[in-house]
Computed example of a mutant assay.
Amino acid sequence: MVKHMTMTHFKPRLIVFDLDGTLVDSSPDIAIAINQMLSELNQATYSEQEIKQWLGFGATKLINCALTGELEPKIEPANLRQAMRLYFNFYSANICVNSQLYAGAKEGLEQLKLAGIKLACVTNKPALLTLPLLTEIGIKDYFQFIASGDTFQRMKPDPLPLLEAAKAIAVDPEQALMVGDSINDIQAGKNAGFKTAIVPYGYIGKYSIDELGADYQINTIEHLAKLVC
């Protein structure tokens, strides 16, 4: 059973946030770009809700899922490279049209920053999409460290980007918290030796909150700030 976080449990010096599904609801713009890609390839399109279940695993898997209609594609589609080019073109041109910060996200980041807690953003989104989204939605400057899915050789659930964040900010993993919405976030945090917190919204996929095995559950980022500041 996931514990609701309380002030007595843990006081992190570093908090690492996932991006899509944790800070930003980007699924509307992603779904539009995926369906534009599929239409260009003369393939069937999907609802935003269907596309949401494929989010959080990086762009390559997202596009694989869209091309095959499978959550765990067994064969790489022959037109994957063409599809990726189309998707990046469509999405990068409209990266923050319908995307929105989740309630309390910016307020929480502001409170955490003012309290002197170091903040990082680690996402599986490619860098060419991560930085424009963070900039356009107005939260890039809150982070002392940003890592995308292609920043290092491995991405979440591998612990490497989280450990690099802790190293860059000179914080021991035991003093860090990973906040996310998916199995990749929680596994990455645990693999890195971080405490982990799950938000009850976002792109949780096929899992229940309890199945993800996070140490804590928070309601919003602003809620987190009130607990640890």
Score class of each variant (00 low, 15 high):
residue 1 M to S: 14
residue 4 H to T: 12
residue 5 M to T: 01
residue 9 H to W: 05
residue 11 K to L: 13
residue 13 R to W: 01
residue 18 D to F: 09
residue 19 L to F: 14
residue 19 L to N: 07
residue 20 D to G: 11
residue 20 D to N: 09
residue 23 L to W: 08
residue 26 S to A: 12
residue 28 P to E: 13
residue 29 D to V: 12
residue 29 D to P: 06
residue 30 I to R: 11
residue 31 A to H: 08
residue 33 A to Q: 12
residue 39 S to E: 15
residue 40 E to H: 15
residue 40 E to S: 14
residue 41 L to N: 05
residue 44 A to C: 07
residue 45 T to D: 01
residue 46 Y to R: 07
residue 47 S to M: 06
residue 50 E to H: 13
residue 52 K to W: 08
residue 52 K to N: 15
residue 52 K to C: 14
residue 52 K to H: 06
residue 54 W to V: 05
residue 63 I to R: 08
residue 67 L to V: 04
residue 68 T to Y: 01
residue 69 G to R: 10
residue 71 L to M: 13
residue 72 E to W: 01
residue 72 E to A: 12
residue 73 P to F: 09
residue 76 E to F: 03
residue 76 E to M: 12
residue 77 P to K: 03
residue 78 A to E: 14
residue 78 A to D: 13
residue 79 N to I: 13
residue 82 Q to F: 04
residue 84 M to A: 03
residue 85 R to H: 14
residue 86 L to S: 10
residue 88 F to Y: 15
residue 91 Y to C: 05
residue 91 Y to V: 04
residue 91 Y to M: 06
residue 92 S to P: 00
residue 93 A to T: 07
residue 95 I to K: 01
residue 97 V to Q: 13
residue 98 N to V: 00
residue 98 N to W: 04
residue 101 L to H: 09
residue 101 L to Q: 05
residue 101 L to G: 07
residue 104 G to F: 08
residue 106 K to T: 03
residue 106 K to A: 14
residue 106 K to H: 12
residue 108 G to A: 08
residue 108 G to Q: 10
residue 116 G to I: 07
residue 117 I to L: 06
residue 118 K to T: 08
residue 119 L to H: 07
residue 123 T to A: 11
residue 127 A to L: 15
residue 132 P to Y: 05
residue 137 I to T: 01
residue 137 I to W: 02
residue 138 G to N: 04
residue 138 G to E: 07
residue 143 F to L: 03
residue 145 F to W: 11
residue 146 I to E: 03
residue 147 A to C: 05
residue 147 A to T: 02
residue 152 F to I: 00
residue 152 F to R: 02
residue 153 Q to P: 00
residue 155 M to K: 15
residue 155 M to V: 00
residue 157 P to F: 08
residue 159 P to C: 03
residue 160 L to V: 07
residue 161 P to F: 10
residue 162 L to V: 02
residue 168 A to L: 10
residue 169 I to C: 13
residue 170 A to W: 03
residue 173 P to G: 06
residue 174 E to H: 13
residue 174 E to K: 14
residue 177 L to Y: 09
residue 177 L to D: 00
residue 179 V to L: 08
residue 183 I to Q: 15
residue 183 I to C: 05
residue 183 I to T: 06
residue 188 A to K: 09
residue 189 G to I: 05
residue 200 P to E: 05
residue 201 Y to W: 11
residue 202 G to R: 01
residue 202 G to M: 02
residue 204 I to C: 07
residue 207 Y to K: 12
residue 208 S to Y: 01
residue 209 I to T: 08
residue 212 L to M: 10
residue 219 N to R: 10
residue 221 I to M: 08
residue 222 E to Q: 13
residue 228 V to T: 12
